[in-house]
Amino acid sequence: MEIMTLVVTGPVGAGKSTFIRTVSEIDVVDTDRRATDETASLKHRTTVAFDFGRLQFGRNRALHLYGTPGQSRFDFMWDILIRKAQGYVVLVAANRPNEFRYSRRILTFMQHRSRVPLIIAISHSDCEGAWTPENILVAMGYNAQKPAPPVVIVDPRNRASVAKSIVKLVQSAMQYTRSFSKAG
């Protein structure tokens, strides 16, 4: 089986689970764990949740999608996921400016760990208080000196919209593959 692994990351509530569920052909799997050792008495509940979805195509080919945990304290889980990823989507809710700083934190972490292709997918762009993509990118640290990665507007509930986002990422992956081949 030939598998491409994509990671979907972003703050809680940006639509990661929905994004994966919408395109997955299997029921999305999520994990939710309790601390089972002595720390359980100190920490009421330790959650390490990530979503998993799959899209099979061709005979022996599949796309695996992993959603990162939303909490920054699980950096190690992000690290494990990013090590496997051949691309990632940073999902940002346009109407939640209070989360832009956290999204930027995720991006900083990811970009210092991996150079695989990424896209920024902006959700909730039709909601009240939504910022324009241009302003969101500035809030996330992109400007004239630091060009932004590809950006798409996405409705995580809509299969065609999610598929379009992944296509955008795949296009970046193709360029990456070609540059990798040239370098190699």
């Binding site: 195509f57 990823a85 051949q86 760990r113 695989v116 193709m174 593959t177």
Partner: peptide, 26 residues
């Protein structure tokens, strides 16, 4: 570990083309 970039092997062009076709048809 800022210098330790992780580079999993990229997918083949053929794989990506087929995935795109599949997504575009979905």
């Amino acid at each position: 570990n800022s210098q330790e970039f992780i580079a999993p092997p990229p997918m083949s062009d053929d794989f990506l083309q087929e995935l795109m076709r599949s997504l575009n048809n979905s």
